[in-house]
Amino acid sequence: MRKIVVTEFLSLDGVAEAPDSFFTDWDDVVDASIPRAIATQDAVILGRRSYTEWSQFWPSSQIEPFATFINGVAKYVATSAPLDLDWANTTVIDSGLVEFVRDLKQQRGGDIGVHASISVAQALLAADVVDELRLVIAPCIVGRGRRLLDGLPSLRLESIGSETSPTGYLLVDYRVIR
């Protein structure tokens, strides 16, 4: 069975919204975490907002290895509104998100990533379909903004890896315990 792996950039107080505003000291350790995070993924689930923002940036980006990965990977977009599908390998999820993901997990393939899409990550965590959580936590308190873990039911996690970068970012990987 395929795994659902949520990867998010957060502040210490859990804010996931607009991480580019508080990820200011990107270092080699954080940079090296990207290829590891995407190495086993062959599909990505995005929410509409992330899709819209990313489809305007990544197709012409030279930021590697993520640009090659995200432009080539199968992208499934959770939205109920019409969507411009100009970005290669994009499919709209036309059924319920959780049911779609449960079905996708049963198909052959690699891991399925959830990147940046806060609402999608929250819905999948609440529905208990996420297998791993990979967090990069910035050494700052933002104070306001959408938080990844707000409103979720209780979840038990097992640490499967952690590292501190030279500039103080925490990279923590968890497995969801069922």
Rank of each mutant, 00 (worst) to 15 (best):
1 M>V: 03
2 R>K: 14
2 R>A: 08
4 I>Y: 11
4 I>N: 06
5 V>M: 06
5 V>N: 10
6 V>G: 02
7 T>N: 15
9 F>Y: 15
9 F>W: 15
12 L>T: 12
14 G>Y: 12
17 E>S: 14
17 E>H: 07
17 E>K: 10
19 P>M: 10
20 D>P: 01
20 D>S: 12
21 S>V: 04
21 S>T: 14
22 F>G: 00
24 T>D: 00
26 W>D: 01
29 V>P: 00
29 V>L: 00
30 V>N: 02
30 V>E: 03
31 D>R: 15
33 S>V: 01
33 S>K: 03
35 P>S: 13
37 A>F: 11
37 A>N: 14
38 I>P: 01
41 Q>M: 15
45 I>C: 04
47 G>P: 12
47 G>A: 07
47 G>N: 11
49 R>N: 10
51 Y>F: 07
52 T>A: 13
53 E>S: 13
54 W>Q: 09
54 W>R: 06
54 W>G: 11
55 S>F: 05
56 Q>W: 00
57 F>P: 01
57 F>G: 00
59 P>R: 08
60 S>P: 00
61 S>V: 09
61 S>G: 08
62 Q>T: 09
65 P>C: 11
65 P>F: 08
66 F>Q: 11
67 A>I: 08
67 A>C: 08
69 F>P: 08
71 N>V: 07
71 N>Y: 12
72 G>T: 15
74 A>Y: 14
75 K>I: 08
75 K>G: 11
75 K>F: 10
76 Y>D: 13
77 V>L: 05
77 V>S: 11
82 P>E: 09
86 D>E: 09
87 W>P: 05
88 A>R: 14
88 A>S: 14
89 N>P: 04
91 T>P: 06
91 T>G: 09
93 I>C: 06
94 D>V: 06
98 V>D: 06
100 F>V: 10
102 R>L: 01
102 R>H: 06
104 L>D: 08
105 K>R: 13
106 Q>G: 05
107 Q>V: 04
109 G>A: 02
110 G>K: 00
111 D>Y: 00
111 D>C: 00
112 I>A: 04
112 I>P: 06
113 G>F: 11
116 A>C: 09
116 A>T: 07
117 S>W: 13
117 S>I: 14
118 I>T: 02
120 V>K: 06
120 V>H: 04
122 Q>E: 07
124 L>P: 07
130 V>K: 07
131 D>L: 02
132 E>F: 04
133 L>H: 10
134 R>L: 11
134 R>V: 05
134 R>H: 15
135 L>Y: 14
137 I>S: 03
138 A>V: 00
139 P>H: 03
140 C>M: 04
140 C>V: 12
142 V>E: 03
144 R>K: 14
144 R>W: 11
145 G>M: 07
145 G>T: 13
145 G>L: 07
146 R>D: 09
146 R>Q: 12
147 R>I: 07
148 L>R: 12
148 L>C: 13
150 D>T: 14
151 G>Q: 02
151 G>A: 01
152 L>H: 00
152 L>T: 02
153 P>T: 04
153 P>W: 08
153 P>G: 10
155 L>V: 06
156 R>D: 09
157 L>N: 02
157 L>M: 02
160 I>P: 01
163 E>G: 01
164 T>N: 10
165 S>A: 13
166 P>G: 05
167 T>G: 02
167 T>D: 05
167 T>Y: 04
169 Y>F: 15
171 L>Y: 09
171 L>C: 08
174 Y>Q: 03
176 V>N: 03
178 R>T: 02
